[in-house]
Amino acid sequence: MMPSLGLKASTSLEQIDERLQYQPSVFEFYTDAHDMTKNGLAHLEEMVKYVQSAGVRQIVIHHPMAYDHHHNEVAVSALKDPAGYQFMMSSADALIELAIKLNVQVLIHGGYSDKEAVVNSFGDFKTARKVIFARLDYFQKMGGDHVMFENSISPAFDYGDEEIEETVMAHHYRLCYDISHGFIVLHGDNDKLVNSIARLAPQTVHYHLVDSMGQHHDSLQLGKGKIDWQRVMKVVNPKATNIYEIDLADQNDSREMRASHEYLTNLLSTQQIH
């Protein structure tokens, strides 16, 4: 698979215009709680249409990562945190509805919190996972081919965990595989990472291409970490889209994402991997 130039931005017109000048074939919107207000959703819709008018056909909207200074967690207790639960569900519903209307994709993160926080919400980990999958089933039924689920470094929803992988395969979910998250979960083991990516490739429709040292969430530019990209790119789904989800020094300058694309394209061209 030769990667696409996939770039990510907020709903800021300045960021969007900076990305569009490089003619990406994939565009992912990073959203926050402000984008989920009535005015925010109207602005998001206009920005999606704006990106589409620039000729970009592959567009993903990332479900907000936070609400009221907490993770926007699928495994939120409706009883212990009714406001957080209401935000999580209503924002997912609104984005899926918008995605169907505009023929784009919504990405929902399967989890963010550590095991202790998830257990505190539901009493035990097994119950928490049941709740997560029941909610993902609901989103899948509602969104169909317009919704995908991303892996985390949280044990609530981490690819590399065989139990999670077996469940997502059994539920026939459409997946986003964040390569760095898988690498961190597997403690920097490239052999296990390649096996996990290959196993889930048939259901993976989108990749977050990000490097890592494999110890913690570091979101490195490709070539700056320890992921074996030659091996990874041999087993990804060639029909899937991708973006480079790299930490930027300046949110209005996508240079680290573009440098990652240049690195990977040169690497694969040199090795003649297709």
Results as ranks from 00 to 15, higher is better:
residue 84 G to F: 11
residue 239 K to G: 14
residue 163 E to T: 06
residue 263 Y to M: 13
residue 13 L to V: 13
residue 94 A to Q: 09
residue 36 M to F: 05
residue 33 A to M: 08
residue 46 E to P: 01
residue 268 L to T: 03
residue 274 H to R: 10
residue 37 T to E: 14
residue 84 G to N: 13
residue 187 H to V: 04
residue 259 A to Y: 06
residue 162 E to V: 09
residue 152 S to V: 09
residue 51 V to H: 00
residue 32 D to I: 06
residue 208 H to S: 03
residue 151 N to E: 04
residue 121 S to G: 14
residue 42 A to D: 10
residue 219 S to N: 15
residue 99 A to D: 12
residue 12 S to A: 09
residue 163 E to Y: 03
residue 214 G to I: 07
residue 29 F to W: 01
residue 183 F to P: 00
residue 249 A to D: 14
residue 238 P to D: 15
residue 227 I to C: 08
residue 240 A to P: 07
residue 141 K to V: 12
residue 253 D to Y: 09
residue 220 L to W: 10
residue 109 H to K: 04
residue 182 G to S: 00
residue 126 K to H: 09
residue 127 T to P: 12
residue 29 F to E: 02
residue 203 Q to M: 11
residue 111 G to I: 08
residue 198 A to L: 00
residue 32 D to S: 11
residue 24 P to R: 06
residue 162 E to N: 08
residue 231 R to Q: 15
residue 43 H to R: 11
residue 106 V to H: 12
residue 103 N to A: 14
residue 218 D to E: 15
residue 36 M to S: 05
residue 75 A to R: 02
residue 219 S to K: 13
residue 36 M to Q: 07
residue 77 S to V: 12
residue 69 H to W: 13
residue 241 T to G: 02
residue 264 L to H: 01
residue 9 A to E: 06
residue 188 G to T: 06
residue 23 Q to A: 09
residue 105 Q to W: 12
residue 54 A to Y: 10
residue 168 V to E: 02
residue 161 D to P: 03
residue 74 V to S: 04
residue 44 L to M: 01
residue 232 V to P: 01
residue 272 Q to V: 05
residue 45 E to Q: 07
residue 43 H to M: 10
residue 211 D to N: 09
residue 72 N to K: 11
residue 103 N to K: 15
residue 4 S to F: 11
residue 248 L to N: 07
residue 107 L to F: 05
residue 207 Y to Q: 04
residue 169 M to N: 07
residue 48 V to Q: 01
residue 164 I to Q: 03
residue 209 L to N: 07
residue 120 N to Y: 15
residue 189 D to E: 09
residue 172 H to V: 03
residue 196 S to R: 00
residue 175 L to F: 04
residue 156 A to V: 13
